[in-house]
Computed example of a mutant assay.
Amino acid sequence: MKFRRKPRENVDINLASLIDVIFILLLFFVVSTTFTRETQLKVDLPEAASGAPREDTALKQMEVVIAADGNYSLNGQVLVKSDLEGLMAALGQASEGDNSLPLTISADAKTPHQAVITAMDAAGKLGFAHLRIATVEAEAAQP
């Protein structure tokens, strides 16, 4: 006995609705994702037993922050070139040639000494006279 075979039906999957769902998911993830960009260097300042508090003046102030690994940041902007020439170029551009501005160097307690000397050398070569090194007040020793 010979049975008749049914012809196979082609099964089609409608991809249009699947593509719509994928695009909606993509849009959701793009909108809900937050991109953080770290521009500030985290610095633990060294301690000092004596010192003067920082004065708030109306003058434009410049601050060089040196991270523990020796990377420089000028007024909150991380410098691409962390060497003497890069720091001098950034200081000259930010100060617009005015070397009478007060300059504060904030170095991490674990920063290599050479990085601090490089920052001081750059300031000296550009003629900055008002130079400060930021510290935190040391805690009094318990007797």
Rank of each mutant, 00 (worst) to 15 (best):
E137T: 01
R132C: 02
V64A: 05
A49L: 05
I133S: 02
T34K: 14
N71V: 01
P102D: 11
M1N: 14
N99V: 11
D44G: 06
E63T: 06
V21Y: 07
Q114I: 03
M1L: 13
E137C: 02
K42V: 10
R37Q: 01
A119C: 08
S82W: 00
N14M: 12
T118C: 00
A109Q: 05
I24M: 14
E55S: 02
M120P: 07
K42L: 13
G92H: 12
A138E: 00
P53T: 04
T36E: 09
L79V: 13
V116W: 13
Q61R: 09
P46N: 01
A68H: 10
D44P: 03
L27H: 15
D98I: 15
S95L: 14
P112Y: 08
E9D: 14
A138F: 07
Q61E: 04
L41M: 14
P7F: 15
N71H: 12
D98W: 08
L84R: 14
E47P: 06
R132F: 04
E139Y: 04
S17C: 15
E9I: 13
I22T: 05
A16H: 05
D69A: 02
G124R: 07
H130A: 03
T34F: 11
M88I: 11
E139G: 01
S32A: 05
E137H: 01
Q77S: 12
G76P: 04
L25K: 10
L91N: 10
T118F: 00
K6A: 07
K42F: 11
L25T: 14
G124N: 06
T104Q: 07
A115S: 09
I24P: 08
A16Q: 02
A16R: 05
D98G: 10
A90L: 10
R132Q: 09
A123E: 02
I117P: 02
M88K: 15
A52W: 02
R54W: 11
D20P: 04
F3W: 09
